[in-house]
Amino acid sequence: MSRLQLKPMLTWSGFFPGKPLRKDPLKHFRDFSLNDLIPVLIWVKNSLELSEKYTDFIEALTRRMEPTKRNQLRYQLQRSRISHPIVVDKILVEIFRTHTLKKSDRDIEETGFEDQLFDLLLYFNDLHYEAHYLPLEVVTPEAMWSLSLAQASTGLNNVDYARTANIKHLIFLKFLKQHFGENYKTIEDSFKQQTGLSGFHVLMITLSRFYLTTETGNAAVSSTQYSR
């Protein structure tokens, strides 16, 4: 069984210490077409998800960078990761939300594009990790849950989900009860109101049924017996 590995992420604050975040991180990309940007970001996401593609991705990203920046990046990547697919998803959401240009004379092959793409990843890494997770004490259960969720190391592929998902859900619910005490019921009541479900456990069972249905075509557990 493979061990859970939580690797530190490069962030804007870590790579450019003392340099403030850009006010408009997408400014450089607004003159590029969606038809060019989306395939690039999907390539980035796929390269981050598949370990066999990661090395080639780093080489392609850094090949034309300014030498000092390239050397610093390659050195730091010996002990950290450049980004995470979740971060790329956030970038894609922002682009779809704000970007409308479908045709452009700008070419993604122009000099400096890789530098700007790297800076964009760092910016959103900062938003995803620095602001929400780094202030936590790393030895606490809260920090471990947060880091695990931040890096999607919660067993979401079909094999891991079948093996451990329900156990992880139960452990997480126990953690919430212990951590929030009397306030746990308030959180669950809010969840019920927001989702229309009768409790946290129903979500766990619903997701399990969804998995069984997609994998086998049969839902082995009926949700009605848990909806009371």
Rank of each mutant, 00 (worst) to 15 (best):
Q72K: 11
E110K: 05
V40S: 04
W145S: 01
L6N: 08
F172Q: 10
R106L: 10
S148D: 00
L26W: 12
L136K: 01
Q194D: 06
V139N: 10
P39F: 02
Q116W: 02
L173Y: 04
S83L: 06
N46S: 10
Q116A: 12
P141G: 11
Y75F: 15
I38V: 14
T195R: 12
S153L: 14
T186W: 00
E137A: 11
F180A: 09
Q5D: 09
I171Q: 13
T98V: 12
T214P: 00
N157P: 01
L170R: 09
M204A: 14
F118I: 04
M65K: 00
T214N: 04
S80Y: 05
D36V: 08
E49C: 06
G112K: 07
S13L: 05
P20Y: 01
S83P: 10
E94T: 03
R97H: 11
D24M: 00
V221Q: 05
F180L: 13
L212P: 00
D56C: 04
A165P: 01
R22M: 11
S227N: 12
F113H: 03
R228D: 15
M65P: 04
L77F: 03
V93N: 13
S208Q: 11
K53M: 06
R3W: 07
L37P: 07
K19R: 13
H28A: 15
T100M: 00
E142W: 03
V202Y: 13
K174A: 07
L61T: 03
F124C: 09
Y75W: 13
I187Q: 12
W145N: 05
G181M: 09
K185E: 10
V40E: 12
I91Y: 11
I91V: 14
I42T: 08
D107G: 00
Q194M: 11
T195G: 07
I108F: 07
L50R: 15
F113T: 07
K102S: 15
E52M: 08
H169V: 08
D89Q: 09
A220T: 12
R81E: 12
Y226K: 03
T164Q: 12
T11Y: 06
L127E: 05
T216W: 02
Q76A: 08
L121P: 07
P85F: 00
F180C: 09
I86A: 13
A152R: 06
L6I: 14
R63W: 12
F16W: 13
K27Y: 11
V87N: 09
G199L: 05
V40T: 11
D107V: 01
V202P: 02
Q194F: 12
N35Y: 04
R106S: 14
Q72M: 07
V93F: 03
I167A: 03
R64A: 09
E109N: 13
S83M: 08
L176N: 10
T140I: 05
E215A: 14
I95E: 03
T213P: 02
E142Q: 14
I95Q: 02
L117G: 08
Y211A: 14
L173D: 03
L34H: 05
L149S: 10
